[in-house]
Design a protein around this nucleic acid. Sequence first.
RNA 1: GGAGAGGUGGCAGAGCGGUCGAAUGCAGCAUCCUGCUAAGAUGCUGACCGGGAAACUGGUCCGAGGGUUCGAAUCCCUCCCUCUCCGCCA
Length: 424
Amino acid sequence: MLDIKFIRENKDIVIAGAKKKRITVDIDALLALDDKRRVLQASIDEKRAEQNIASKAIASAKEEEERQEVISKMQTLKEILRKDEESLQEVMKEWRALMVTVPNVPDMSVPDGESDKDNKEVKKWGEIPAFGFEPKSHVELLLSNGMADYERGSKVAGFRGYFLKNDGARLVWALNRFVEERFMNKSGFTPLIVPSLVRREPFMGTGYLPQSEEDLYKTQDGDYLAGTAEVGSMAYYMDEILEKKDLPIKFFAFSPCFRREAGSYGKDTKGIFRIHEFVKYEQVVLCEASHEESVKYHEELTANSEALLQELKLPYRVVINCGADLGLGQVKKYDIEAWLPSEKQYRETHSSSYFHDFQTRRLNIRYRDENGVVRYVHSLNNTALAMPRILTQIAENYQRADGTISVPEALQGYMGKDVMGRVQ
RNA sequence: GGAGAGGUGGCAGAGCGGUCGAAUGCAGCAUCCUGCUAAGAUGCUGACCGGGAAACUGGUCCGAGGGUUCGAAUCCCUCCCUCUCCGCCA
């Protein structure tokens, strides 16, 4: 959520920002409503002031007659007040509904564009592997090596269901230890295991609701299943005031993730690239309210993820997401995409974004700065490692002519071997 | 699933129709005091919305929303949340 004062004073910037994100929002209607709101509020304040003075007069009145006179006067005022309050309530209902639809303003460096096709590549790392044979897709590789079972997966779990088996399961466990160890040694990150079953407020606060209700699983108790540990870890400090000396707060957060993938029925229907249920390690940062700080940590979080891919020796690129590919609250986002030989293209493994105070304003997470002024912290998040998606890139990039899969060097110690597969 | 208790400022905790934005304690800040530190003394210190260049000033906020009343932290209703005990259980 943006500050209404900011919207009022920077109307053109907000409109341009929404346009860049390809989000339709009627700022003029919002501002007209806001004018009404302010007029009504002022009028109510004035009447309340009158009431407060009268109230003291009633309490301290010495004579009953004088007392009754003020009371009857206040009875009339009460009626007028009630009408104003009713109008204000109506205005506020509309006002709030509009406010949650106003997107955050994207950074200057965000390219203009209509879809993820217009994302701008800013970095490439690694050699794309050259095979002396026709490379297989991860779908086939994981199946033929006994590492995944899709048929029984859908029998048991339905569409997009899967089992990971043998080296498929071992590889996930190896990756768990790999990523945990890397972050254990990184100073400043607090390890956190995060709830996936989360109440409505954290979803509102992080900006997933009300817009993306259809992407979320909902329980009969009205809770939702989170699609990322971002939701739970951001909300960890909801409604709290932090001290500046405690910032930045960095979480290395783990959670199971659930996504309905409602808008993508036709996409990636085979294998384990796009599934309803997975696990993810996420980096989450709360920092001081400064653009420079946000940018600094954004680069740091991105570099952390790149270091993992480099250690796994997976060729990847970094793109800046274009306006249309940004979420409501995001100011800027890098996607990191690792090479997928069967598709001859890079596919997303990480998503790194910052929000300024968009999320924390909704979540009401603040801190006291050096002057004792209370301000909203800034928030950021980026994937550390999502599984099993990364298996797709590992399997394909490390496949061998005989159909088995080499174990990336960085994982050999955790796997206890250097080749996976062929276990039926 | 059953039975109770409770939600008040950064924290703890009083208040239970008007003089309550709210005692008191802790924490924090400032000054004083003391070789240093600790301790002690005095004072200050909530958030939000609006007006004002500022000093300052009007309003709101005691889980949320309604209601009663001239007036609600206090009374009534609905909802949300937390805790305790019993049962069940990884």
